[in-house]
């Protein structure tokens, strides 16, 4: 569906995307995951023909993003980072407007948005500016879907939306995928990675890793331990001071710790020395890393 995107994009001195290649299969739910400034939005804009790459080429549904931009503009759906709706138009007016602009009607593809639209239908006469974040997000998704696009580009659709709406949103995406729509989604939230078929972890315009979430986790090269104690801050200071420690960072209520050149006795040695420093009640446990652990490790490499 999207073939061999290789592009460098220079904006003055700032390299937003650096020699970036990516291949998304038809019908896939693909996630671009990285913090602000990783280049996610630039990639979306190149693929939706809004920006020209400096080098390299990209195709969407077989069309070249530079030469055949008109063909692409007809068959993709795009939801930019901020929910791009007319705040002073009602829910229904927004939807009608975007349907008409894309040369279709609400009725024609209603089956596609029915499930989502029904949730906001009670508010159809309300101005979009007066909707909650979650509802705006749903409306924006409806607007992006109304012309039955082959590929759906969602740029940080869950930013600024509460947990309940986020969860519902990802469920909607799964159902859309089942309808055969290819979805490219970006997010700064690592915990959303596992909801995608495949992901690209991005940092500073480069891909750190590209694979299924499972494979990325499996590729984590060392053992990861979770430590916990009454006073996390002093525990972390003491762990970091120990020469056996490779890395130690807070992760929720725990500290995630990896060890240098780990041997069978390393962990016990570390625990022993921590006990000597007064950490009597340490809880520890070997854990399976999550995407965020992988990202941190890849960033440091």
């Amino acid at each position: 569906m999207l073939n061999h995107i290789t592009k460098t994009y220079n904006d003055g001195d700032i390299v937003a995307i650096d020699d970036f290649s990516l291949n998304v299969e038809k019908g896939e739910l693909f996630g671009l995951i990285g913090p602000d400034g990783a280049g996610k939005t630039s990639i979306f804009r190149i693929l939706t023909t809004l920006l020209l790459p400096d080098k390299g080429m990209a195709t969407v549904v077989g069309y070249d993003v530079v030469k055949e931009y008109n063909a692409i503009r007809g068959c993709v759906g795009y939801m930019p980072g901020r929910f791009s709706l007319y705040q002073d138009l009602s829910v229904e007016e927004n939807l009608t407007f975007f349907a008409t602009v894309f040369g279709t009607t609400i009725q024609e593809n209603y089956y596609l948005i029915k499930e989502i639209y029904e949730q906001i239908e009670p508010f159809k006469n309300r101005r979009a500016g007066k909707l909650s974040g979650g509802m705006k997000q749903k409306l924006a998704l409806c607007c992006a879907l109304i012309h039955k696009p082959e590929v759906l580009f969602l740029d940080e659709p869950t930013t600024g939306v509460d947990a309940v709406s986020r969860k519902e949103f990802w469920e909607m995406l799964k159902r859309l995928k089942a309808q055969g729509i290819t979805i490219l989604v970006s997010t700064p939230y690592m915990d959303e990675a596992t909801l995608c078929d495949r992901i690209a972890l991005m940092q500073a315009g480069k891909i750190l890793s590209l694979d299924t979430p499972d494979n990325i986790v499996k590729a984590y090269p060392v053992n990861l331990y979770a430590f916990k104690d009454e006073n996390i801050y002093t525990l972390q200071q003491n762990i970091l001071a120990n020469e056996l420690t490779e890395s130690c960072f807070p992760f929720g209520e725990n500290l995630h710790v990896t060890l240098k050149d780990e041997t069978d006795s390393s962990l016990q040695d570390l625990l022993k020395s921590l006990k000597e420093r007064g950490h009597e009640q340490i809880e520890h446990q070997k854990i399976t890393p999550v995407i965020e652990d992988c990202f941190i490790r890849l960033m440091k490499e």
Partner: peptide, 13 residues
């Protein structure tokens, strides 16, 4: 500013 221009540009309009 709203970002709707992006959508309009991406549309066949």
């Amino acid at each position: 500013e709203l970002g709707t221009m992006e959508i309009l540009l991406v549309s066949p309009f």
